[in-house]
Design a protein around this nucleic acid. Sequence first.
DNA 1: CATTGATATGAATCCTACG
DNA 2: ACGTAGGATTCATATCAAT
Lengths: 362, 362
Amino acid sequence: MIKISNVKNTIIQGETVETLRQFPDKSIDCIFADPPYFMQTEGTLLRTEGTAFQGVDDDWDKFSSYNEYDQFCFEWLKECQRVLKDKGSIWVIGSFQNVYRLGYIMQELGFWILNDVIWEKSNPAPNFRGTRLTNAHETMLWCTKNKKASYTFNYQTMKFLNGNKQERSVWNIPLCTGNERLKDKNGKKLHATQKPEKLLEKVILSSTKPGDLILDPFMGTGTTAAVATQLARNFVGIEREEKYVKAATERVKAVPYVTNDPIMLASLDVKKPRVPIERLIEAGMLKERESLFDKFGGNGVVLKTTGCLDDGDSVLSIHKMSAKKLGKTNHNGWDYWFVKRGDDLVSINEFRENYREQFENE
Amino acid sequence: MIKISNVKNTIIQGETVETLRQFPDKSIDCIFADPPYFMQTEGTLLRTEGTAFQGVDDDWDKFSSYNEYDQFCFEWLKECQRVLKDKGSIWVIGSFQNVYRLGYIMQELGFWILNDVIWEKSNPAPNFRGTRLTNAHETMLWCTKNKKASYTFNYQTMKFLNGNKQERSVWNIPLCTGNERLKDKNGKKLHATQKPEKLLEKVILSSTKPGDLILDPFMGTGTTAAVATQLARNFVGIEREEKYVKAATERVKAVPYVTNDPIMLASLDVKKPRVPIERLIEAGMLKERESLFDKFGGNGVVLKTTGCLDDGDSVLSIHKMSAKKLGKTNHNGWDYWFVKRGDDLVSINEFRENYREQFENE
DNA sequence: CATTGATATGAATCCTACG
DNA sequence: ACGTAGGATTCATATCAAT
């Protein structure tokens, strides 16, 4: 059995399933898996000008049938589910050749799909023969271990980085090319399917916190490890081929800096501690039996020791009472109620903020 | 058994599978299917013809909970495969809740995926709770009956309509709203998932010829029927609920006009008849033993009666000879060779075009 | 050094009618 | 059914050489 502390921020050379079986249960915060796609291509594809297109022709992508591929995926996905923490989540990337196998199997295993995310390629390889639509995207499945599981989603961070609009399920990102693409001694691409760092950046920023441990069971050239490191997360990788293990290890060592940008550290999504209104009474910020008003000074109600409000007709929580005054079923009372301090109306939310600042280290 | 001529351009009220079973084999050119999602858990275990997961341990079935939906989809997809012509193709649309079931089952049935096409919604409903990425797309699977099947793809039409660039697998199209959306007496939307006509337009334009028969086994409000009619294709629909049958029938009747735009009628993709170069000699357009040249007047070769070219070294077809001159294995000789007419060099392709015009009715 | 043009290349289920 | 010949087919971007 592997001790996590011994493998944190390393790449283990080995077979995915075999190696995963040595991991303890519920030890991983997030998984990014880029398995073989089982492309089923035959022969050579010529470009229009006559040169050969260099697609995926590696042994690791060869399977004898869907059945064999399904079983392989069933096995590694089952291990991923076991090693994932209850509040963890998993990303799996594929293309139309394999993603319907992956999605089906994951649903059978009880994984719960949060989103399927489309990586729309801004510069895809064209369809040289004009036989189909240019295949310009890949699909990622983002899932929890099961239907009921909670999970990390840095909503505010993603919204901020998307020009203050909700991030959507279609991401337009270029292919991994140029300097980012690792090359061998002959200047040829080291790996057939290296993913762009931009893609991993969005994956990690959206679904992990700084310090989380991210597993990549098909590490390849180590994009997950490099981006995790840069974003102040931890990683552990599994990779079968020695040359990729070496290249990825070098790559991670060379990550130029670890970010200290608070946005990248998910500061926007740090949950503030809950402060019951009774705490504000105990702290002397609000007084028992004092009156609360709406922002115009109307709708006066009396604050009870329990933190509930009495309008002479009923006794309700600050939220239910503001909802009642507004004729709604739900409302956030912290934004509705004010107290009188001298001649001014002061929002009770201001007292809550003050309380948090004063007692933040408790 | 239903006679196709009796149901052409009508909507049949009935259950999908039951009705499809009355259709003759190989009678449909194209299918567009927008099936319901109804995911019922805890159904009876019914396997898909034994092909799935033989040899996988018992954990498999323990996790199964989508069986009833799978079984339903297996049945209607199998009937679709039966009624589809050998050269037909099928489109199936779904979202992450069901599309992995659909894709998996289609692959199990032997359907061959040509593309998965993403309908990216330009105006999706936001995620109100901020709990996930905004689900801003749906997925369509475009498939032939089997791996070897040929199919209709109007490549040039799609390219033309896309600003003369290859059409890609991600389509950005707004939701169906406004006047296009059918309403009931109370002004509420008549159907929960009415698809935009623009989507069906691209589906039909890319994969059918005018006059083709398009089946929609879950017709709903009849978007497929309306767009098929407008684009001079035929349709047959199946729909369970009477109110939708009525609304869709009215809708088709009201289609304002049938297009006569040659682009929409796929004129760009009409295959031109093959003209062997010997025909041009017989027609007196080219002369035996005259010389052919490249576009600069160089590389002179002699035209033989057989239509082959002699460069003094070897005798080859116009294609092989142009390839030889270019140092390639393949080339289109029609674009390479010219003859002298007066002081001008004239492309032999021009003579081919003239020949086609002159003898087009043969 | 700046600009222009040629070349290289990316997870690809990449042809079809005729004899 | 199968082999073969005809002939149709590419977009965005990075790099590097040439001007």
